[in-house]
Design a protein around this nucleic acid. Structure first.
Lengths: 223, 223
DNA sequence: AACATGGTTTAGAGACGACTAAATCATAGG
DNA sequence: CCTATGATTTAGTCGTCTCTAAACCATGTT
């Protein structure tokens, strides 16, 4: 049995470690709201349990076992989010916080019932993939909307934000997973971009908002 | 903010304290699966927080504040049970354990969404009343089916058991909340009773099972 | 190559909640 | 009335997770 605290760390590491597969002490500590010292101590214990490999001063990497367990926690979290929006009608800008509390308390049985009644949803309301029970995760190649220039565009894959205000704003503009978006005006160095979402009127958005939107560029439009 | 452990104690005290409004250290400790020493220590802290009155060696009594908070935890628990059976199709014999884990993790918002989609259910699947948000609880006068003799009968109000095997057995016999039941053969001292449930064929049941069934005797049949 | 800076780790200590063993109390029986 | 018995409380520890303060390391700058 793995403690609830350790589960929190596991999920945090999973979400923090980027393509380099390395999560630093500070980044994990910040995400969990604990001191770096606490995270460092926990990393030692997790390494002893075989959940991570720990290179001192450089950060941790999930082992196969750790990664599998992390995906299952994330699966619970994202299924819970999907459930909260689809079945209970709770706004997508609030479900992340609520699901945080639920992800530890959901027995396997309930998680799988969620999956069943949701028709085996593939993504959470923010667009992130829901890992399968065996730990597989669908990957998509994306670019931040902030990195696209005039003429660029594609389909919104996910929105990486947890600030409710930002999420609500983006939703009001139609910037939700699945939407087609195109940059009408946007010089590479500019502070704002004018974008068009689906059939809507064009809107001007600042970089802060654009950075949160991950876009999958269509195959035939790739450089 | 009140700790999750304290919430567990609060709910346990609420369920243990009988009509005398007193919960003993041992009874609470047994229900929570902790030592009496641990419960004793916790009672001191809860008394300091104003949740209970504590008479040493005699047990605790919920204060108004403690009682209100306890009812809200029980509300979450019973709404979760109702949700698990009605919306997810999980068997009534297993939902108690599952809801135990969920009762701390359900934010107000989710609890009230449950209540809404469940049409403000009045009782949990086992028949216990679901407290209102203001802490009111509907009371019913009941007698254990084991205490009724030949000719007695009424409506099953609730089933006070958490052993899945017992619950499954009772359900198979039709002994679920709302069912009309009558004692066909049952001397006051006997080990078994022959009972008839609704329109079914009569069955003989042992005291162990009968004791779990709380029956509301019809007004005109009261002694 | 030496150093300044910022992130990371160790040291020391505290809150919480659990346990066992020993002491204490309440109460029923003689 | 006194004592035996069982329940309850106190005393002393332990494990987990957290913190701050101080020592340490990796890196980029001069």
């Amino acid at each position: 049995m793995i403690s609830q605290t350790m589960e929190d760390y596991l999920a945090a590491i999973y979400r923090v470690e980027g393509p380099t597969h390395r999560a630093t002490t500070g980044a994990v500590a910040r995400r969990l709201g604990v001191s770096a010292a606490s995270a460092s101590a926990m990393f030692h214990k997790m390494a002893d349990s075989g959940l991570v490999r720990y290179r001192e001063y450089l950060g941790v990497t999930l082992t196969a076992s750790g990664r599998l367990q992390a995906t299952q926690i994330v699966r619970r979290h994202r299924l819970a989010e999907r459930f909260l929006t689809d079945m209970l009608g709770i706004g997508w800008e609030r479900v992340d916080k609520v699901a945080d509390q639920m992800e530890h308390a959901l027995p396997e049985e309930v998680t799988e019932s969620f999956a069943r009644v949701l028709g085996d949803a593939a993504r959470c309301p923010h667009g992130y993939p829901i890992p399968s029970t065996s730990g597989e995760v669908a990957v998509r190649e994306t670019v931040s909307l902030a990195e696209l220039a005039t003429g660029g565009g594609g389909q919104v894959a996910w929105v990486s934000e947890d600030d409710p205000v930002v999420l609500a704003t983006l939703a009001r503009r139609g910037l939700v997973p699945g939407a087609e978006v195109h940059v009408l005006v946007g010089a590479p160095g500019a502070k704002r971009r004018v974008v068009q979402v689906e059939g809507r009127a064009a809107v001007s958005l600042q970089m802060g908002l654009l950075q949160a939107v991950a876009v999958e560029v269509a195959m035939d439009a790739r450089p």
